[in-house]
Amino acid sequence: MKKLILTFALALMSIIGFSQEGGATITITIDNVTSDKGKVLTSLHTSETFMKGKGIQNAETEIKDGKVTISFKNVLPGEYAIMTLHDANENKRMDFQDNGMPLESYGISNNVMSFGPPNYDEAKFIVEDKDLDLNIRF
């Protein structure tokens, strides 16, 4: 009887363990950060969270030699966009000049550079069942 219970418990733990894994890993590389001062803040967004605050996953990374690598794990299939910011003064937000222009470097997925705020439709990409490697430029 003990063997049966132990076997059942191990089988249940295996099933639970496998069910928690899933989705793709998105690895983002940014290799043109202008200084190692501060941190890089990166957010994974859906259309519902884009430009409205925190993403569905968020990361804060130190900079080494002008480069960072960030990974978002267990991302379910769907449509997403990434926003990233060099928070040089570590105040956890983007700083602006008096005329509204950003003081700190930023980038979005698909490396779209436009005048004005980022646009979700230009930054979106599709996650399927395999891992993605993205390079974002500031």
Score class of each variant (00 low, 15 high):
Leu76Lys: 15
Ala81His: 05
Thr34Tyr: 00
Lys73Met: 05
Glu128Asp: 13
Val40His: 11
Gly116Cys: 01
Ile16Ala: 13
Glu128Phe: 00
Phe8Glu: 03
Ile82Ser: 11
Thr61Val: 11
Thr42Val: 07
Gln20Cys: 09
Leu76Cys: 05
Pro77Leu: 09
Phe96Asp: 04
Ile82Arg: 08
Ser105Arg: 09
Thr29Ser: 10
Gly38Asp: 08
Gly78Phe: 01
Gln97Ala: 15
Ile82Val: 15
Ser35Asn: 07
Gly55Trp: 00
Glu79Trp: 03
Pro118Leu: 07
Thr34Asn: 09
Glu104Phe: 04
Leu85Glu: 06
Asn111Ala: 10
Ala11Asn: 10
Phe8Thr: 08
Ala11Ile: 05
Thr27Asn: 07
Gly100Ser: 09
Asp98Val: 03
Ser43His: 07
Leu10Val: 15
Asn111Thr: 06
Pro77His: 11
Gly100Arg: 08
Met101Cys: 01
Val33His: 00
Ala24Asp: 08
Phe125Ser: 14
His45Thr: 07
Gly100Val: 02
Gln97Arg: 14
Val33Phe: 01
Asp31Gln: 05
Phe115Cys: 04
Ile126Phe: 02
Ala24Asn: 08
Glu60Phe: 09
Asp65Cys: 01
Asp87Leu: 00
Lys52Tyr: 04
Asn58Cys: 03
Ser47Gly: 12
Ala59Ile: 01
Tyr80Val: 07
Glu104Lys: 06
Lys73Asp: 11
Val127Trp: 06
Ile15Trp: 13
Lys37Ala: 06
Gly17Ile: 05
Lys67Arg: 15
Pro77Glu: 14
Phe115Asn: 12
Arg93Lys: 15
Leu12Trp: 06
Gly100Asn: 06
Leu10Ser: 15
Val112Ser: 13
Asn119Phe: 04
Lys73Ser: 12
Asn91Met: 04
Ser114Thr: 02
Asn89His: 03
Ser43Trp: 13
Lys67Tyr: 02
Val40Tyr: 06
Ser47Met: 10
His86Tyr: 00
Gln20Glu: 14
Ser105Leu: 07
Asn89Arg: 02
Lys92Trp: 02
Ile126Gln: 08
